[in-house]
Design a protein around this nucleic acid. Structure first.
Length: 215
DNA sequence: TCGACGATCATCT
DNA sequence: GATGATCGTCGAG
């Protein structure tokens, strides 16, 4: 029998957790664990240290900016707690958690995590298994890296994240005093929305992606 | 340590 | 036909 705390951190967050505004869900996801279950019972776990909230219609940085009008944007209109995975720049995958309800089209992009379990396997997935020096942020310090580290591709789209091979668990929630926020990364095209402070990170964490957030 | 740049293709216009 | 919720490499300082 595991000690109570060890069981608790790997307790899945309920679907209800995600049925809120993306901004709230994003803030509350910091410190939680993203857990990938492998065949044979092995497990990879990341503690989330950086996320971004995307709203639906009206958020010009969001894939849902024009509403559920295309094949891709319709995939954001799901119930909260399901995954949304897409390919970016033809070569990297990005993992989102849908927030709110199927009418919102809002989501949270998981941008960075700190390895908690299975760091060696993640290093191999990232192509740095051969004794090369691994620096903080190399494994999951960016949305593309995070997916690579956990072996997440398009087949992980539309999963229920409270059960199954990819799960978000209770982890170690973060106090307000340890949270920093700022504008989202790589959305300069989005006009006014580009400046909205919807990027959240754990203060002074070495695994957060660039550009670094101020205090 | 930092900035520029190319890879590579699904999605959107 | 153009572009992007990115990343690794390379060359300069």
């Amino acid at each position: 029998m595991l000690p109570y705390r060890a069981m608790s951190v790997f307790e899945p967050l309920p679907a209800q957790f995600y049925r809120r505004a993306s901004e709230e869900v994003a803030r509350d996801l910091l410190g939680r664990y993203l857990v990938r279950f492998l065949d044979g019972g092995r497990r990879l776990a990341l503690r989330l240290v950086e996320v971004e909230a995307y709203q639906g219609e009206g958020d010009r940085a969001s894939h849902a900016r024009n509403g559920p009008v295309t094949e891709r944007s319709r995939r954001l209109y799901r119930d909260g707690g399901r995954s949304y995975v897409y390919l970016i720049y033809g070569m990297y995958h990005c993992l989102n958690v849908v927030s709110g309800t199927e009418h919102d089209g809002s989501a949270v992009l998981l941008r960075a995590g700190e390895p908690v379990e299975g760091a060696e396997a993640m290093a191999r997935n990232r192509g740095r298994g051969g004794g090369r020096r691994v620096r903080p942020g190399d494994l999951a310090g960016g949305p593309g890296k995070l997916c690579q580290a956990l072996g997440i591709d398009g087949s992980f789209d539309d999963l229920e994240l409270w059960r199954g091979r990819l799960v978000v668990t209770r982890g170690e929630p973060v106090d307000d005093g340890r949270v920093v926020r700022g504008p989202r990364v790589g959305v300069d095209y989005a006009g006014e929305a580009a400046g909205w402070p919807l990027r959240f990170a754990v203060a002074d964490n070495r695994h957060v992606s660039k550009p670094r957030l101020g205090k």
